[in-house]
Amino acid sequence: MHTELDLKALQYPIGEFVSPENIDDKQVKEWIEDIALFPSRLIELVEELKDDELAYIYRPEGWSILQLIHHCADSHMNSFIRFKLALTEDTPTIRPYLEDKWAKCPDTLEMPIETSLQILTGLHARWSHLLNRLTEEGLKRTFVHPEHGKQFSLAEAIGMYAWHCYHHLAHVSLALKFKGEF
């Protein structure tokens, strides 16, 4: 039986995101590179997987690899839109979505991973292009996330999504390591 500590480590295999107090240009560039490379890193991990392997979960009651891949497409599409809102509106309040419910929708449970891998490939190309062209002023633009009750700068959001990429790559790796058996 897994302990509560074990389950937390499985849920956050790379730890939880902690924003640096000071975010410098070098850090932002590294995060943007992580975002740009995410689709190819994910494809490398999953391109040869069979349907039974796509059903592997990374922790008890966790999502399957299939759900993780579709979740990344959903999450990153939402994030891209949040960035565009922050760049074109004054401190917009973004709309959260119910990730757990989205992960149970028919497209998430039934569609082949190639559909979301294509979305991620195109989306990350556009997203990283946009991020690489943000000025210092652009990086300071903010949006409000009502679930967290705070403003996030785009610089901080870049870091959160670079973390999100590695977070879910680690989940896929764990699911493959344990072959979904808990």
Rank of each mutant, 00 (worst) to 15 (best):
H70S: 05
C72F: 06
C72S: 06
A73D: 10
A73N: 10
A73C: 04
D74H: 07
S75D: 10
S75P: 10
M77A: 13
M77H: 13
N78W: 10
N78R: 06
N78P: 11
S79V: 01
R82V: 14
K84Q: 09
A86M: 05
A86C: 01
A86Y: 07
L87V: 00
T88N: 08
D90A: 13
T91V: 15
P92G: 04
P92N: 05
T93F: 11
I94L: 05
L98P: 04
L98E: 14
E99I: 02
D100I: 01
K101V: 03
W102E: 07
A103C: 06
P106R: 05
P106Q: 10
D107G: 12
E110H: 05
E110W: 00
I113W: 12
I113A: 06
I113M: 10
E114G: 11
E114I: 13
T115N: 13
T115K: 15
I119S: 05
I119D: 02
L120V: 03
T121F: 14
T121W: 10
A125P: 00
W127R: 02
H129M: 09
N132P: 05
N132Y: 08
L134A: 08
L134T: 01
E136H: 04
E137W: 00
E137F: 01
G138C: 02
L139C: 02
K140L: 02
K140S: 05
K140I: 01
T142P: 00
V144Y: 09
H145E: 07
H145W: 06
P146T: 06
P146N: 09
E147A: 09
E147Q: 13
G149S: 03
K150R: 12
Q151F: 03
F152Q: 03
F152R: 03
L154G: 06
L154N: 04
A155R: 11
E156W: 00
M160Y: 12
Y161F: 13
A162D: 09
Y166W: 11
H167L: 02
L169Y: 13
H171V: 10
H171D: 11
V172Q: 13
V172R: 13
S173T: 15
S173W: 07
L174R: 15
L174Q: 15
A175K: 14
A175E: 13
K177T: 15
K177D: 12
K179Y: 04
K179V: 12
G180D: 09
F182N: 11
F182C: 08
